[in-house]
């Protein structure tokens, strides 16, 4: 028989109630929801100033994207969320999903970039906010995954030279902070290009993200490769399949299914890590908030409330993804 009313529970419960009440009081009852800077200043910290979000939400969500054209990043964001949404549904999971994604991603880029069919051209330095976060995450994953598969196969393969090269690359990237890899994108990649060749910052950062995430995902996939019983490869070889046929049709499908939860974790980590690109001057969600409030003396004092709003967006994204991953796991088991 379990006792629920114990002294420890009473004390803990009282503290929780007290803290919960204060949080509710601060975040809802005393909070200012109107974009009214004077009312916010009058609070003197006794309530939250969500007015900063009401006033600046366009800059926070879309960065420096031209104001009149902001229906385009909005539409693009909804499109991407829709693509991610239908990919989780069982009945859409078939061969046509690849086609849907290819068209969807092309449409996504076209909406942001424009320059065709009467849409005004908007260059990548003006892209920002939530769509930029989504680009870096989704395109980063799309690029990192094939790289990771190749690196994992190379590190597990029979050719000593390839094995060494893959090992050195993976361990080198995993041994340094992501900031260092982003610095490479910002300062070294331009030096590596012949004179007259210039790539926009977004593309360089995307390459850096792909290299970084690829090294981490390679280790995840390699773990999956090692877990596939040796007999599988031997049996496939005995049937006369070539190396690539064995890997692509026998080993990889089993390995990837086993490490799917760990790959989802890599995806969540990458989604969070995209916030670092502000350090090399790209204004995704985190950076866009700085853009919105740092230069505005009226609202600068309420950066905290803005950051909490963004934290909520990230939290929802990470939490739903990890819950989805867990549901896949229990379904597979």
């Amino acid at each position: 028989m379990k006792r629920h009313i114990t002294p420890a529970n009473l004390i803990l419960g009282a503290i929780l109630l007290w803290a919960g009440w204060h949080l509710f009081d601060w975040a809802v009852l005393k909070a200012v929801f109107r974009p009214d800077a004077a009312a916010c200043h009058a609070l003197e910290g006794s309530g939250a100033c969500w007015g900063v979000v009401a006033e600046k939400y366009r800059v926070i969500l879309f960065g420096r994207y031209p104001l009149d054209e902001q229906w385009r990043p909005l539409l693009a964001t909804l499109l991407m969320l829709g693509l991610l949404g239908i990919s989780t549904l069982q009945r859409f999971r078939n061969r046509r999903l690849w086609l849907v994604w290819s068209i969807g991603l092309a449409l996504f880029i076209f909406l942001l970039k424009g320059g065709l069919f009467g849409l005004e051209n908007v260059d990548t330095p003006r892209w920002g906010g939530l769509p930029l976060t989504l680009i870096l995450t989704v395109f980063g994953l799309a690029g990192a995954f094939p790289l990771a598969v190749l690196l994992a196969l190379g590190r597990n393969g029979r050719l000593p030279v390839v094995r060494t090269l893959c090992t050195v690359f993976i361990e080198l990237v995993r041994g340094v902070p992501m900031v260092a890899v982003l610095f490479m994108a910002a300062f070294l990649f331009p030096l590596f290009m012949p004179r007259g060749w210039e790539f926009p910052s977004l593309l360089r950062v995307l390459v850096a993200i792909i290299l970084f995430a690829g090294a981490y995902m390679a280790e995840v996939i390699r773990g999956g490769l090692l877990a596939v019983p040796k007999g599988q490869a031997e049996a496939a070889q005995a049937l006369g399949l070539s190396y690539w046929q064995v890997q692509l049709t026998v080993i990889l499908p089993q390995a990837l299914r086993n490490v799917l939860p760990a790959l989802m974790n890599s995806a969540i980590a990458l989604f969070k890590d995209t916030s670092l690109v502000i350090i090399v001057g790209l204004f995704e969600l985190t950076g866009a908030l700085g853009l919105a409030v740092d230069g505005d003396p009226k609202w600068r004092a309420f950066a905290l409330d803005g950051y909490l709003f963004i934290a909520l967006i990230y939290w929802i994204g990470c939490f739903t993804t990890s819950r989805y991953s867990r549901s896949l796991e229990s379904k597979a088991a």
Binding site: K272, L304, Y307, A311, Y314, W315
Partner: peptide
């Protein structure tokens, strides 16, 4: 655990920083 794992570290650094210098 669920709260702090699911918010980017950079955001947490910035939130603590504006709390310290602002409040």
């Amino acid at each position: 655990v669920e709260l702090f794992r699911n918010v980017p570290l950079l955001l947490q650094v910035l939130i603590v920083y504006v709390l310290l210098i602002g409040r």
